[in-house]
Computed example of a mutant assay.
Amino acid sequence: MKNHVWRPLFLVVAIVAGILFTRTLLVPSDFGVYERGYMYGWHRKSNEDDWKKIRVKYKTSSGCPECHKDKYDDIKASPHAIISCENCHGPAYDHPNDPQGLHIDRSRELCIRCHAYLPYKNNVRGNIPGIDPQNHYPQAQCIMCHYPHNPVKPNLKYKKTEVKP
Rank of each mutant, 00 (worst) to 15 (best):
H149N: 04
H149M: 12
E162Y: 13
A140W: 01
R36N: 12
I104Y: 04
K71A: 15
R55T: 09
I131P: 00
H4T: 12
Y93E: 14
E35Y: 09
D50E: 13
F31I: 01
S107V: 00
L102S: 04
I104E: 04
W51Y: 14
N150E: 06
G32L: 05
L11W: 07
A81S: 11
H146L: 04
T60I: 02
W42G: 02
P133C: 01
M144K: 13
R55S: 11
K69W: 06
P119N: 13
D73Y: 00
N87V: 12
A116H: 03
D30V: 04
L110Y: 01
F31K: 05
Y93C: 00
D70A: 13
V27F: 03
F31V: 09
R44Y: 08
K164T: 14
I131H: 10
H136G: 02
E66P: 01
N150G: 03
K57N: 07
F31Y: 15
H115M: 07
R108D: 07
Q139D: 10
G32W: 01
Y137E: 02
L156P: 03
H115K: 11
K121C: 02
P165V: 01
Y158S: 04
K153R: 11
Y38F: 13
Y120G: 00
V16E: 01
I82T: 10
H80D: 03
V152G: 00
V33Y: 09
R44N: 05
Y117F: 14
K2E: 11
K160E: 11
V124C: 03
E66A: 14
L20K: 03
Y158T: 06
E66N: 04
Y147F: 14
I75Q: 09
S107C: 06
K157Y: 11
M39A: 13
D70V: 12
P96D: 09
V13K: 07
M1K: 08
K52R: 15
V27N: 05
K157H: 08
H43Y: 11
A116N: 11
Y38W: 15
H89K: 01
D94W: 07
N3F: 09
L9S: 12
H136Y: 15
P151Y: 02
C64T: 02
D30A: 08
G63K: 00
G41E: 10
H80M: 15
S61M: 01
P79N: 10
I83W: 10
P91R: 06
